[in-house]
Amino acid sequence: MLTFLGISALPSSPIAAKPTSLPPDDGPSRIRADQWHLATLDSGEANKISQGEGVTVAVPDTGVYPHPDLRGNLLPGIDLINGGQHDDGQDDRNSHGTGMAGLIAAHGQEGSRGARGIAPRAKILPIISSTADNRSNPDDLGKAIEYSVSSGAGVISISSAGGSSPALRRAIREALRADVVVVAAVGNRPLDTEVGYPASEDGVIAVGGVDEFGTHAAVSVTGPEIDVVAPAVDIYSTSIDGKYRKGTGTSDATAIVAGAAALIRSKYPYLPAREVAHRLTATAVDKGPPGRDDEYGYGVIDLVAALTADVPPLGFESVSAPVGAGPSTTAGAQPGDESDGATARGLATLGVIVAAGVGWAVLARRRRRGDDPPPRISR
């Protein structure tokens, strides 16, 4: 069994699995101010550089309702659960999938109204791979992954965690070999006690959560597999019937990181998936003990730095390399240049340890500069 990792809440019931009760005519005017994660991650500046154009993000989940804030960004998908009843995937009886899609690619409405996603010009491929009560199984998720790859998705956002199966493991590994960025939630306490699958799979970007102050979210599972963290507490997004939802969990953090991956893939269209993961980990804002740790991974994602920083590519590894030697990005590399078996965790570790040069040292210092932060995550 797989569990979907977001707790939606009505103001009167902090754990009720229902969309936030904001009427359609009132919600759009209020929601943007509640999306604290956008300002914290400086998404406005990031969107001056990239908005996710040309990238498709697959969302295997409860489906995606055609919310006004997603109009034009929602592709025809597939229903793998209800016998093809909603054969375009554009239906959602739960709100979870719609919320994840909004965090990735909502574009809002005129006058800064409505919800906005991290990559507002990316396309969403909706896949119904779980029932309305969030019940699913690994084989159904495996079919959703296969469909994502065959449909040309550049990023797959998996806001669920649990057990695996041979079919699911095979599908995930085939997606990685196909140069698709796979992002997955690590799991939520207290139901989960360790990093679930597919986040635990080598090569998958495993995402944990932080709160509004940049500290570890109590709901987020910890473990050595965690790569990066993102906002995961009181996260507002789109919901069914044109409404909005408030969620807490590593589901939300995962969708945000998937949006970040879409920004990178859009700016650097020939960057291999492993280099996308490397950019996210290498530019993350370090939290907790210096270096990678089991609560924060490599740190909180930094959208602007991930798009602009002078990050030595994987393979540029000589500790004696002179400053300025070699390329600073593999944006010009063609897909497929990577070797099979590369992992987000292993490769990111290698890049952090052995990359050298003044530019890299400056980047490392910048990543720790937020250790005495104002009330929000800082770079």
Rank of each mutant, 00 (worst) to 15 (best):
D179Q: 07
S239N: 11
G152N: 05
F213Y: 15
D202V: 15
T250L: 01
V149D: 07
S239G: 15
V186D: 02
G187W: 03
S159Y: 00
I240S: 11
T238N: 08
A230T: 14
V181Q: 04
D227M: 15
G154I: 05
H216E: 04
A178D: 13
S151L: 07
L168C: 08
G152L: 04
V181D: 06
V233L: 06
G196A: 10
G249S: 09
S157E: 04
A144H: 01
T193F: 01
N188I: 08
A199N: 06
R245K: 08
E212F: 01
P198A: 06
P190H: 00
S165P: 14
F213H: 15
V204H: 00
D140K: 15
S160N: 12
S237Y: 01
E225R: 08
V186G: 06
D241G: 09
V155L: 06
D234T: 14
L168V: 11
S220E: 01
S251M: 03
S237L: 02
P198L: 07
I205Y: 00
A199Y: 06
G163H: 06
E174M: 11
A184I: 05
G247R: 03
I240A: 07
D202C: 14
V155Y: 02
A175Y: 01
T222L: 09
I235P: 12
R189H: 11
V221I: 14
G208V: 12
V180K: 03
R189A: 10
I172T: 14
R177H: 09
I240L: 11
R173A: 09
A175R: 02
A184Q: 08
V207R: 04
V183C: 08
P190F: 00
V204C: 03
Y236G: 06
G154D: 09
S165R: 13
S150P: 00
R169F: 05
G223E: 05
T248R: 08
S239I: 03
P224Y: 08
